[in-house]
């Protein structure tokens, strides 16, 4: 029989929802001050976003990350119970030029002169969390945690105890970027195979020359056989390419 929709809760198992579209969210400054009040010792910074999307984020220090996350989830006004996206980002060592106006004395007259300073920022790895609220239907609140460096100290606290959706995504960040998440229930590689070494999404990853080759016992037989047969470029590779590819 054709299925039709239910009005009100009756014998079937389906219902239709009313649309509530309340958009109430505090600004990032308010959230920042409330976090600092609720989690003592937390160091929060607001990272501005240059694009027209106006999605600024909060930089959270690693020791208080779990406490901050828990506060964000249980606080009645925010109720950020849905962690939508966990991203890893790799920042290499950068040199950032800053131009500031400095008062200097030029030929006896005090003037404001542009002075460019170069600041060296050491590289780090970052985990960015996009949080929404299913209860209040607002968001996003974006939080970031940074590692100290890109080598030994690439460790962060896992937020999986707070939001279960971070489980697979943090595993993926571990696999592709190499950030070790403390407190993750099952941290192992997820997209690459378990014996793989190195972390492919890092900016300084170099593809190995032989990544499509797997050693087999037959290889040395094939190497010896090659000497006895004429080369067949039309079967084994494209002949007639006039020049090597210049990129």
């Amino acid at each position: 029989m054709p299925l039709r929709n239910l009005e009100g809760k009756a014998a079937g198992s389906l219902d239709f929802a009313r649309d509530d579209g309340a958009w109430m969210m505090e600004s990032l400054d308010q959230i920042k001050s409330r976090i600092e009040a609720a989690v003592p010792g937390a160091k929060i910074e607001i990272v501005a976003n240059g694009s027209p999307s106006q999605q600024d984020s909060l930089l959270i220090d690693n020791e208080h990350a779990v406490a901050t996350a828990r506060f964000l989830r249980v606080d009645p006004a925010l109720r950020l119970d849905f962690c939508s996206n966990v991203t890893g980002v790799d920042w290499l060592d950068r040199v950032v030029k800053k131009t500031i106006k400095v008062k200097t004395v030029v030929e006896g007259v005090e003037k404001e002169v542009d002075q460019t300073t170069e600041e060296e920022i050491p590289g780090y790895l970052e985990a960015v969390y996009h949080l929404y609220s299913m209860t209040h239907k607002h968001g996003p609140v974006i939080i970031r945690t940074r590692t100290a460096d890109r080598a030994e100290c690439a460790r962060l606290s896992s937020l999986t105890p707070v939001w279960r959706s971070a489980e697979f995504q943090e595993r993926e960040i571990y696999d592709l970027y190499g950030i070790h998440f403390d407190g993750h229930p099952d941290l192992r590689r997820i997209l690459m195979w378990d014996e793989f070494e190195d972390h492919p999404m890092r900016k300084d990853y170099v593809q190995p020359d032989d990544f499509e080759w797997e050693p087999t016992p037959h290889d040395d037989v094939l190497a010896r056989a090659k000497h006895h047969y004429p080369p067949r470029p039309q079967m084994d590779g494209a002949e007639g390419i006039v020049e090597p590819l210049k990129r």
Binding site: N49, Q55, S84, T87, H130
Partner: peptide, 21 residues
């Protein structure tokens, strides 16, 4: 060349929430 910055956009794809960051 978009300006420097970041954005997260999402839609209701048939399978769930599909987002690009």
């Amino acid at each position: 060349r978009p300006p420097a910055g970041e954005a997260y956009g999402r839609i209701e794809a048939p399978k769930g929430e599909l987002g690009f960051y």
